[in-house]
């Protein structure tokens, strides 16, 4: 039930709904429509650097001229130039591999957190969350310190006698994966921890009483029950990683770019706004299914608590 008597009582109640609604509509939803519109425009040497521009003052004639000027050139370019397709594929590959690595590293960590004494758990959650709130840029930069040629990793490895001379870590795929795992680990660990922590211990005890080995009990009970956490963590990592810019830009090599980098360079270096917009539209379409799944998950989470 609605405690404040439903919508539309006083002006105060109306404002509470209308203000955030209007804000998000104008600054989140509307911009996507503009991106879509500009993706159908053509590049021009002008300010702003695209045509046609909708001229409302010209009335019908202006609208006609605007519609005639629209073109799918940018999409044709993205579809025909293998550079863009390769960039999308690389993004999805890196996002998939990163998510898998995150799951492999995050699951044992979340499991250990959920098994810790109750008093310690709150502290552990806090410790895992804290780095997430410090700037992504700083966390990536911290790894440049470590991974560069005369950095601490090479120094340590040489001193330990594992390698004879410094190897290249920075500007490799390995560096990208280290950066991704490091930056997104809290996103994976927290939902996993939340489902593991809610789990009923008596199930495992029952399994043990019936002679089930601990390892088998994990596969038969713990893992299936934690699947919602796996899906949640996977979505929270996979979606933003697909469009990541800072990590591949600072840690990756000069080879094949991820799509976030391609969009960035089309926009900032080539000043090709229509192509940059078309890249964003296609990326959004690619991510529509995972974003939809994530949305449903979030809605369900709060509706259950009501």
């Amino acid at each position: 039930m609605s405690a404040f008597g439903g919508a539309g009582k006083g002006w105060g109640a109306r404002l509470v709904v209308i203000a955030p609604y209007a804000w998000l509509f104008a600054l989140f939803l509307l911009p996507f429509l503009i991106v879509f519109k500009i993706s159908l425009s053509q590049t021009a040497i002008a300010q702003p650097p695209y045509t046609p521009v909708l001229d409302l003052a010209a009335g019908w004639e202006g609208a006609r001229a605007f519609l005639d000027g629209l073109s799918a050139d940018s999409f044709v370019l993205i579809g025909s130039d293998t550079l863009y397709i390769a960039s999308y594929l690389r993004s999805l590959e890196i996002a998939a591999v990163s998510t898998a690595l995150l799951l492999l590293i995050g699951y044992p960590l979340a499991y250990a957190m959920a098994r810790a004494p109750a008093r310690l758990q709150a502290v552990l959650v806090m410790l895992v969350v804290l780095p997430f709130w410090t700037s992504l840029l700083i966390r990536v930069y911290a790894w440049i310190n470590i991974l560069q040629r005369d950095g601490l990793l090479n120094q340590a490895l040489v001193r330990l006698g594992i390698i004879d001379e410094p190897t290249t870590w920075l500007a490799t795929d390995a560096a990208i994966y280290v950066g991704m795992v490091y930056s997104y680990l809290p996103f994976m660990v927290l939902p996993l921890y939340a489902t593991l922590q809610k789990m009923d211990d008596s199930l495992l005890e029952a399994a043990a009483d019936l002679g089930c080995r601990r390892f088998k009990a994990f596969w038969a009970i713990t893992l299936p029950l934690s699947l919602p956490g796996v899906v949640a963590g996977g979505l929270l990592c996979f979606i933003p990683i697909s469009g990541e810019f800072v990590i591949p830009d600072l840690l990756g090599g000069s080879g094949q770019m991820m799509i976030g980098q391609t969009l960035w360079s089309e926009f900032f270096a080539n000043k090709d706004w229509p192509v940059a917009s078309a890249i964003a539209v296609v990326l959004l379409c690619v991510l529509l299914v995972p974003i939809g799944a994530y949305e449903r998950m979030q809605v369900r989470r709060f509706e259950e608590g009501r």
Binding site: I239, P240, F245, L263
Partner: peptide, 10 residues
């Protein structure tokens, strides 16, 4: 979860 490049560009 929206990739930041998309939000920024839009």
């Amino acid at each position: 979860v929206m990739p930041e490049v998309i939000t920024g560009l839009s």
